[in-house]
Simulated assay, not measured.
Amino acid sequence: MPSSLSWILQWPWEVFPPRAKFGTGDIPDLTGRVALVTVRFSPLASCAGERESLWTGAEGCTGREHRTRQSDVQTNARVYLAARDPQKAATAIADLLHTTGKECRFLHLDLADLGSVRRAGEEFLREEKQLHLLFCNARGAMYVPMDQVTAQGYDMQFGTNVLGHAYLTMLLLPLLVETAAHSPAGAVRVVSDSSIYHTLAGRGGIRYDTLLDGPVRRKKLSTAAAYAQSKWANVVFAKELARRYGEKGVVSTSLNPGIIRTELLRHSAFHRAILNWSMFDADPEGALTQLYAGTSPATASAHGQYFIPLAREGVSRPDTYSEEAGRRLWEWIEQATAGVEA
C-alpha cells in the first residue's frame, strides 16, 4: 500500500504527464480476440454529422473511446460497441467502417438501467463464446444534477459509473474465466476507467447511505462528492476483481485517462473553465493509457494496477488498496443486483 505522500506527489504528473513512451503502433496484433467497449451517449448531445460533435459532444463517447475502438479493429479484434443510443452507435460504427474498412458490432446497453445491463450481458453471451478485452470506459456521468437517478433509484453517477459496469462485468465473468483458460497468460483483461478525482472522495471512500435516492442523499451528497466516490469505487472494484479472479487468468486494472477536452464537464462550466488550460486532446492522447492497460505485453500481469497518463504505472489513494473496502463494495453490488430481471 502506498503512502499518502506518494500519491499526493503524483498529482502534478497526472495533470501534466511527460511524453508517452507507448503509442498505438505498439499494440500487438489482436487477431482472434473479442473486445467489448462501453460508451454512453447523451440525448442532449448533437451528432449532426460533424466528426467533432460525434466524438466529443456525447456524454461518454469521446475521441478517446473512438481511438480505442479504431485501434482494436485495426489490429483485427472483433469489437462490440455497447451504448444506449442505436442511432448514434450506428453513426459511430459507420465512421469506424469508413476510417478502418472494418466493422464493429452494436450491443444495446443503458448503464443506468440494470434490466438493460442484464439483457445486454445475456445477448452478448448468446452471440459470443469468447471475451478477451472488456473496456469499462463509459465515464460520462459527472456533476449530474441531483434530481437525476437511475431506473432503480440509485444516484445517477454511482449507478452509471460503478453499478452498471460492475454488474455487466459480473454477468460476463464466467465467459472471461473460460476464455482465459484457453488463452495465453494476460490475454483476458478488464480495464475500468476511474479519474484523478477518486482522490477527492470523502473519508472511507463511499457513503453507502447516499447511494439510493432519499433525504440522506439529497442532504449529504453534492454532485462533486457523488462523482468522486464513484471514481474511488471504480478503483476499489478493479482491485477486488483482481484479487478474486487474477489467479483464474483475468487481469483487472483501473486508470486515470487524463484531463481530456470533452463534454464530460458540461454540467459544470466553472470546473471546465478552470481545467481547460491543463486539458489535452482526446485523440490520440486520451486513449493511450487505456490501450496500454488493455493491450500492451508490458501490462499482461498488472493485476490490480492503477495507471496514469500517459501510459504509466501509478498509485491510487492508499485506502483503495483495502481488502475490507473491496469486499464490502463487492458484496453491496451483489445485493443491489440480486434478482434483477431482464
Score class of each variant (00 low, 15 high):
Leu36Tyr: 08
Val79Trp: 01
Asp29Gly: 10
Ala20Leu: 06
Leu36His: 01
Gly60Asp: 01
Arg33His: 15
Leu54Lys: 11
Asp26His: 08
Val39Gln: 06
Leu30Tyr: 07
Gly32Ala: 11
Ala77Asp: 04
Arg33Lys: 15
Arg67Asp: 13
Val73Ser: 04
Thr75Cys: 12
Val79Asn: 02
Tyr80Thr: 08
Pro17Gly: 12
Leu54Gln: 04
Thr68Met: 03
Ser71Asn: 07
Arg51Gln: 10
Leu81Arg: 06
Arg78Ile: 02
Arg67Glu: 04
Asn76Val: 10
Thr62Leu: 10
Val37Arg: 09
Asn76Glu: 12
Ala45Tyr: 05
Gln70His: 03
Gly23Lys: 14
Leu54Thr: 01
Arg69Ile: 15
Glu59Met: 09
Glu52Asp: 15
Asp29Ser: 14
Gly63His: 10
Ser53Thr: 14
Gly57Leu: 00
Ser53Lys: 11
Val37Ile: 12
Cys47Gln: 05
Glu65Arg: 08
Arg67Ser: 04
Thr62Gln: 11
Ser46Gln: 07
Glu52Met: 11
His66Ser: 09
Arg51Met: 12
Phe22Arg: 08
Arg78Thr: 11
Leu54Glu: 02
Glu50Ser: 15
Gly25Phe: 02
Ala77Ser: 06
Ala45Thr: 04
Pro28Trp: 02
Ala77Asn: 05
Thr24Val: 12
Val73Phe: 01
Thr24Cys: 06
